[in-house]
Amino acid sequence: MPIFEGQLITMIAQLILAATIFALLRRSRSGERLPKIRRLAGLDAIDEAIGRATEMGRPTIFGNGSGGLNSAQTIASFSVLEYAARSCARYDTQLIAVSYVASVYPVMEAIVRTSYLELGKGDSYDPVNTVRFIASGWGASASALQGTMRRERVAACLFMGSYYAETTMITEVGANLGAIQVAGTANTAQLPFMISSCDYTLIGEEFYAAGAYLSKDDVQKVNLVALDYAKAITVIVIIIGALLATFGDASHLKNFLNY
């Protein structure tokens, strides 16, 4: 009787990943230190952007694209939003957080409000203008976002999340305004537009890592460390496979992995 035909190794690999996550989480909750996550240059760029906006007395805009709550990118963007909200509250810089996904909007609002309240800056939190639901659907929201950026003359743009075709439209406006732009997405087709027009871009997994770095939640950090282990093993398996293919025959390893 074939069990998990063609998927046995797939399943075992994931069981190992699950065990790693579980073990690391236990370690971290019992107080042991996890490997340190390196600070990414993009995070300094966020500080720099907000600092510039503070100096100029102009607002910072935060957007997290069109991903829903089921998108890992949206989840990662929340940590960045919280960080940005706290920085803005601390320096009394106006923050405009925009959403165009109905389910994401209330979560963003909760995050920003809590951050302001925790820093004792509840007065600076404007319930109408700080977090805005601008439109739904990418066409309408892209033009609404462009309009908001122009009208408010934003000095710092943080675009973190699952962005699609609207990228070209909004990053160009930001560049024309002379704003410092920091972006992060895992949607590879949009990365060229971000890289070319933003001052700093968090590429793919870097974006998740930034989220985990800024997050207070140890699950996100554990996840990142476990994935690093998985990638290290992947690198080793690929090296072995390529060497076997070069000096012998990699088909056994191939068949094994496909078993």
Binding site: L17, I21, G204, E205, A226, L227, A230
Partner: peptide
């Protein structure tokens, strides 16, 4: 990038 994303997706499912 695809491999990294696949690992990330699996970790989320886990």
């Amino acid at each position: 990038i695809t491999m990294g994303a696949a690992l990330g997706a699996s970790a989320t499912a886990i």
